[in-house]
Nucleic acid binder design. Structure first.
Lengths: 104, 104
DNA sequence: TTGACATATGTCAGAATTGACATATCGCTT
DNA sequence: AAGCGATATGTCAATTCTGACATATGTCAA
């Protein structure tokens, strides 16, 4: 879900850093980018806390190690669906996920 | 993102109601279904509160009226990506979305 | 070094999701 | 009843996302 703006900038040689909206993203776009980043980060955090390898989590999800690597790197071809399924596959409940998302 | 179990049951003539896991869903599946339902419901609630028609919201999202109808009905071919983009397009912030998701 | 294990990166054909469109149905006013 | 605006439902070609695979890179111990 790469925006046109992101595509243009990346074509020009720029990369998205951890900061969010120093590019002129609409508020909605910015919220979405941040959401993806914090989910990706938390999947990794939770996976490691469980002493799972990426392959372990992939097996649990019916996915593959390479896709988990991309997911944790928040690559643009990873869907929110997969991110949430990964969260839930690490045992997260809605309450925890909600708290994560709500955190400023 | 229809699970095999859901597919089997629906093939046998059953329909998913508003209740969640009276079918034998794994906890992860159940969390995902509930998440989708409450997002879909809240998009409609927020849209109506803004006095938007489905077509209005669709325009704002670069989508179409029919897709918004499907989204609000939580049809299975609607992605979480679209659900979240719709939430943000109604002006929701992560904090509100998080609270919604965390709510029991 | 070598080997073993974990993670990263690139590719691709198949699957899922998309917006667009047509059309049906509903609710409401005249 | 007829007209109108809003919503629902079905279809489909194009786009996006997917798991699988190959392979590269990194890390650590023997």
């Amino acid at each position: 879900m790469k925006t046109d703006k992101q595509k243009r900038l990346e074509a020009a040689g720029f990369k998205i850093g951890t900061a969010d909206d120093f590019l002129k993203l609409t508020p909605a776009e910015s919220e979405l980018v941040t959401l993806r980043l914090c989910l990706a980060h938390d999947v990794r955090r939770r996976r490691i806390a469980l002493h799972f390898t990426q392959a372990d989590l992939a097996r649990r999800l019916g996915s593959s190690q390479s896709r988990i690597a991309k997911l944790e790197a928040a690559e643009t071809d990873v869907s929110l669906d997969l991110l949430f399924r990964a969260m839930f596959a690490t045992g997260a409940k809605r309450r925890e996920v909600g708290r994560l998302i709500a955190a400023v």
